[in-house]
């Protein structure tokens, strides 16, 4: 066995990056093993995706008649393409925003969290590591949603702006992850161990569901609510991606209140806001999460065992 002498700090920095990456990889393998070992889970996963996607589309069909003419010129002419973007983005955002808290909570109650803290890995590695589950479980839904929409419901897309669309996706995913980290930190910071986590509830369950515009453009909302919708990243991502991907959509022509006020092209507004949100939310998330752990370390709530 290799045991370093007591007190001799191991060469932490040189190996730390390699080790963090290896650890993330271990997380990914772990998630894959779990995913694979619950074979019925895979069946359920398919059933779940199939049913929920179908439900979303059926809902879309139902409001189609009313909503289609409200779409406005900017987002093109195909209502199904409009909601495919909404549903697909929601899958992404829900994962990045709502999952961190749930997974931190679960790992705390299993007693694995404190042992992860009690190891060479960084405190953020578990957060990222748990997200590898999403890549297996949630991100692939994107293809289902797209495939469904295109094959069964007549959605169509244009792919000439794929690269910018990808850029917007990365931006909105990271800003949503920032909010996810803030929400996760409330587990320790506010000592919310059970029930409803307020950040998650507010942003995802309330604002995003009601105002972000998965099924309809924000313009159908009263003006004050449109401004509220401008507070969450979802709104900008929907706007940008629809302009870029939906057939017949325009890159110009302001829709969101902020776009109407600022003298820039709408996509520049979307990009700037999403960039700014990422720049602010990620560091705030990192900071609050570290603070939360410090607080738990002080009042003895970090571990569940005594």
């Amino acid at each position: 066995m290799r045991v370093p002498a007591a007190g001799e700090p191991r060469d932490v920095r040189v190996h730390s990056l390699i080790r963090e990456i290896a650890t993330l990889w271990a997380f990914a393998i772990r998630e894959y093993r779990i995913w694979q070992s619950y074979r019925v889970n895979q069946v359920m996963w398919m059933v779940n995706i199939f049913v929920t996607t179908l439900l979303f589309f059926l809902m879309g069909q139902m409001v189609k008649g009313k909503a289609a003419h409200l779409m406005g010129a900017a987002y093109g002419t195909n209502y199904m393409s409009f909601i495919v973007v909404g549903i697909a983005m929601n899958v992404f955002l829900f994962t990045n925003l709502a999952d961190p808290y749930t997974r931190i909570a679960r790992s705390y109650f299993n007693g694995t969290m404190d042992l992860m803290l009690l190891s060479p890995m960084s405190i953020y590695t578990p957060l990222l590591g748990f997200m590898t589950k999403s890549m297996l479980d949630d991100y692939p839904r994107l293809f289902f949603v797209g495939g469904f929409g295109m094959l069964l419901f007549g959605a169509a897309f244009r792919f000439q702006y794929t690269l910018p669309a990808l850029g917007f996706t990365v931006l909105v995913l990271s800003s949503a992850f920032g909010i996810g980290m803030i929400s996760a930190s409330s587990f320790y910071l506010l000592n919310i161990k059970r029930g409803t986590e307020p950040v998650r509830f507010l942003v995802q369950q309330l604002l995003a569901t009601l105002l972000a515009g998965s099924y309809y453009p924000v313009t159908v909302l009263p003006r004050p609510l449109q401004w509220v919708a401008c507070l969450i990243p979802h709104t900008y991502a929907f706007d940008a991606l629809r302009r870029l991907m939906d057939p017949g959509a325009h890159l110009g022509g302001a829709v969101l209140p902020l776009q109407q006020i600022l003298p820039w092209p709408p996509l520049a507004v979307d990009g700037a806001v999403l960039g700014l949100m990422t720049l602010i939310l990620i560091p705030v998330g990192l900071l609050l999460y570290a603070r939360g752990i410090e607080k738990a370390r002080r009042n003895g709530t970090l571990t569940r065992w005594q």
Binding site: R10, R30, N110, G111, T112, L118, T303, R304, W305, Q306
Partner: peptide, 16 residues
């Protein structure tokens, strides 16, 4: 934390 090992008093800790 990175440099010490610990066995908790109950094995329900840390087992996945």
């Amino acid at each position: 934390r990175a440099a010490v090992s610990l066995v908790a008093p109950t094995a329900d800790v840390g087992i996945d």
